[in-house]
């Protein structure tokens, strides 16, 4: 469990970083928090000839408010910083509320949001949250920036829209509308483990208290996190009741194609997906699950 030999670069600027990854795109890998990548190297599941360490790149971390009230989270922002940020809590309480489920404090201290999304583990929380929020991903290369919506970013297990010469520099979360509530539920073997299966939901209530929009994501139940449009539409049509929340769970179970693995069977994932969705939706009944009042 020792990594193979590799050339190592530690650029200081984004310009330098994108040039390096452009130059080494055939056999290079980016290193951010290293919480998944370093074990992958040690187990020799990957043997890149070149590693470009982003940790010293200036300006690649931190969260800020966008002019339209949206939240900009730079790629190298540590999970722990997101968890503890009052700004994030105000602009996107779902993100804040999910953070305690992301691994352990020690890992959150080091792991980055861009690294997690670029790695695209099907059971990771960050991709699911980005998808739920309809976030945009900013990908930077020597030729400039392009913006890819979350729905197109995740393409398969450990596979994203990132080209070999691109860096995920920013995730933009749209502004949190008034009347939005959130729910998050996951089933993990131990606290901090990757989820066997989990669900993130957002429900936008109009002034009359009706469900104006719903966003339901299931993760760990397939190759990528999935939005369950049929369930979302059903909730808008029928409103949130104990019965419709159960129905949303059933629709989810039917919509996914989970796999067996060491920790749970496909049947288990199918059954428990319904439970996760229903429980996440039930959470939206609580006024605590709205945004922090501005």
């Amino acid at each position: 469990m020792k990594p193979p030999p590799f050339a190592y670069f530690a650029p200081r600027s984004l310009d330098e970083a994108v040039k390096l990854i452009d130059e080494h795109q055939d056999d290079g890998k980016l290193l951010s928090g290293g919480q998944s990548f370093v074990p992958v190297l040690s187990l020799r599941l990957a043997s890149p000839a070149t590693i470009i360490d982003l940790n010293r790149v200036e300006g690649l971390g931190g969260a800020s408010e966008m002019p339209d009230g949206g939240l900009r989270v730079r790629g190298l922002t540590r999970h722990r910083e997101i968890e503890l940020s009052p700004l994030v809590a105000r602009l996107n309480p779902l993100l804040t509320g999910t953070m305690p489920h992301v691994a352990h404090v020690q890992i959150r201290n080091r792991g980055t949001t861009g690294g997690s999304c670029s790695h695209a583990d099907p059971a990771a929380e960050m991709p699911a949250i980005a998808l739920t929020c309809d976030a945009d991903f900013v990908l930077t290369s020597v030729t400039g920036e392009r913006v890819v919506p979350a729905g197109e970013f995740f393409q398969g297990v450990f596979t994203t829209a990132l080209e070999a010469n691109e860096i995920l520099t920013e995730i933009r979360y749209p502004a949190w509308p008034k009347g939005r509530r959130w729910g998050f539920e996951e089933m993990a073997r131990r606290r901090g483990d990757f989820a066997i299966v989990g669900s993130a939901v957002l429900v936008d209530f109009d002034e009359a208290g009706r469900c104006g929009a719903a966003k339901i994501t299931i993760f760990g139940a397939g190759d990528i996190p999935l939005r369950i449009a049929e369930a979302e539409e059903m909730l808008v049509a029928k409103g949130l009741t104990p019965e419709t929340m159960r129905e949303a769970g059933r629709i989810t179970s039917a919509a996914i194609e989970p796999r067996d693995d060491l920790h749970a069977s496909a049947d288990y994932r199918r059954d428990v997906s319904a439970v996760m969705v229903r429980r996440a939706l039930e959470q939206t009944a609580s006024p605590l699950r709205t945004g922090v009042a501005a």
Partner: peptide, 11 residues
């Protein structure tokens, strides 16, 4: 008694 086995027994 992992979750998968327990749920299977219940089912």
């Amino acid at each position: 008694l992992n979750p998968n086995n327990v749920l299977r027994m219940i089912r």
